[in-house]
Design a protein around this nucleic acid. Structure first.
Length: 103
DNA sequence: ACCATGACTCCAT
DNA sequence: CATGGAGCCATGG
C-alpha cells in the first residue's frame, strides 16, 4: 500500500489552517485523477487522530458527506478550531484556505 | 488478468 | 441547481 502510505503522509503534513483537495493530493502523488484512490486511502484511515482527514475536502471545498469519524459538524468544529471556518454547507473557501505547498 | 467497489471529478440533461 | 452517466486510479477476491 505504498500509494496509501503516500496519501497518509501528505495528509499528515498539511499545515494547520489549510485544507487540501483529493485531486490536489492525487496530483502531488502521481496522477491528478487518482482522487478516488486517495479518498479510498483516507477511508481506511489507519491512524485516526494522526491523520487530519478533516483537512481533506473535495474539489468544491466541501467536507466529505460520507465522513464518519464523528460527523461533518465535528469536522467543521475541528477546521474552525484550526482556523478554517466552513460554510453552513461545510464548504471551505479554497481560494483562501486550500493548501498550495506542493503546487 | 478480470470484475466489482469507492471519502472523486467532469460533462450532459 | 439537482440528478445521472462515464472516466480515472488503486485494492481485493
Amino acid at each position: 500500500m505504498s500509494f496509501y502510505d503516500e496519501v497518509y503522509d501528505i495528509v499528515k503534513l498539511i499545515p494547520k489552517g489549510k485544507v487540501a483537495t483529493y485531486g490536489q493530493i492525487a496530483k502531488i502523488l502521481a496522477s491528478p485523477k487518482a482522487s478516488r484512490a486517495v479518498g479510498y486511502a483516507l477511508h481506511f484511515n489507519p491512524a485516526p487522530g494522526i491523520i487530519p482527514c478533516h483537512r481533506v475536502v473535495n474539489r468544491s471545498g466541501a467536507l466529505a458527506p460520507a465522513f464518519a469519524f464523528g460527523g461533518r459538524e465535528v469536522q467543521a468544529q475541528l477546521l474552525a478550531q484550526e482556523g478554517v471556518p466552513c460554510d453552513d454547507d461545510y464548504v471551505v473557501d479554497l481560494k483562501v484556505y486550500q493548501w498550495n505547498g506542493e503546487e
